[in-house]
Design a protein around this nucleic acid. Structure first.
Length: 324
DNA sequence: CACTTGACCTGTCCGC
DNA sequence: TGCGGACAGGTCAAGT
């Protein structure tokens, strides 16, 4: 999925594209993706203007002039794609809460959804909606925002803006790692609670630090030369300082590159991100480590596919490891 | 509490 | 080609 850099890229894109637009119509295919009652949608969403687009951890928030907010989690395969095209209204002549089906597909030629220029393999999106489209927002001016999600793990929820900070996730989530006032000392201290976890499991724990996912966990651990199965308590202060710097560097670079597109992540304009071209270990098993030439290997750690350089990231001693 | 594992879904890829 | 199984970027709810 979209990790912090991908969600931030989408946020920046949407911020420049949808603020000020008024929502005219909403269509969705399953309550799993958009659980709100039709009456609330009618009252607080239809006719509302977009006032802001924010992000916290991997969660996007689209604020509305009604005092409500669309809270969005893309999970593994979610996409939010804006298409600025005036479409014939009959194409979306489907009542709210009725499923989208093949006959309601809006024909949009592939070249009308803007892809990353120069990318030979960037045809991730052809026409929208497609079969993974879960929610379609239509603005008064005829433009659209599509929420696509192949695996249906992601969701869009409408709720009062003031209640967003009170949802469980927001109360428990850790600090934003890229904030200027986030210090090395804070970073170190956040891990104390997970002393017996493998360091990778703790990095992926959203209550420790916000926004780290599998890609940037592997990338930053490689940068700091820390094996993912080292237990938290065995990592030294100097190593935490290194990891702090690597995590911030890797995420800032990823934002600069528009995120990582491995399978289906795209930004708000349907474009791919190019961080994978700069990845040092993620999905590079079988290739040489750029630091020492050793072949990168992949294995399972913390329940996730994990990539390391076995020479740079030396295996933990038995006492450094939990379990076997 | 801290920690691990499986579940949620659909699609794709790999081996037989 | 077809089929079964493993796997995929993230969280949760359960289990120990």
């Amino acid at each position: 999925m979209p990790e912090l850099p991908e969600v931030e890229t989408v946020r920046r894109g949407l911020h420049g594209l949808i603020i000020g637009r008024a929502i005219k119509k909403v269509v969705h295919d399953t309550p799993k993706s958009f659980p709100n009652a039709a009456a609330d949608v009618e009252r607080f969403l239809i006719g509302a203007k977009i006032t802001d687009v924010r992000r916290r951890a991997k969660v996007l928030m689209i604020d509305l002039s009604t005092g409500y907010t669309l809270v969005i989690h893309l999970k593994m395969t979610g996409q939010l794609v804006f298409v600025d095209k005036n479409l014939e209204d009959r194409s979306l002549n489907v009542e709210y809460s009725q499923p989208l089906n093949s006959t309601s597909t809006i024909p949009i030629a592939a070249d009308e959804v803007r892809f990353g220029a120069g990318h030979p393999n960037d045809s991730l999106i052809g026409e929208l909606p497609d079969r993974s489209t879960r929610v379609t927002f239509t603005f008064e001016d005829g433009s659209h925002l599509f929420f696509n999600d192949q695996r249906k793990f992601g969701w869009v929820k409408l709720m009062p803006t003031l209640e967003v900070p009170n949802i469980d996730f927001m109360r428990k989530v850790g600090p934003e790692p890229l904030e200027h006032d986030f210090t090395q000392a804070q970073f170190r201290e956040r891990f104390a609670r997970r002393a017996k976890s493998p360091i990778k499991a703790a990095l992926l724990d959203q209550t420790v630090v916000a926004g780290v996912g599998n890609i940037y966990a592997d990338e930053s651990l490689w940068g700091a030369k820390i094996h993912p199965l080292r237990k938290v308590a065995s990592v030294t202060d100097a190593e935490y300082d290194l990891l702090y710097g690597e995590l911030r560097d890797v995420m800032n670079l990823a934002i600069e590159k528009g995120g990582s597109t491995d399978k289906n992540y795209v930004n708000a304009e349907g474009k791919r991100g190019s961080y994978m071209d700069f990845a040092r270990v993620f999905r590079r098993e079988g290739q040489e480590c750029s630091r020492c030439g050793t072949i990168i290997v992949k294995f399972k750690a913390a329940g996730r596919g994990t990539h390391i350089c076995p020479k740079c990231q030396t295996a933990p001693t038995p006492s450094d490891t939990i379990g076997t």
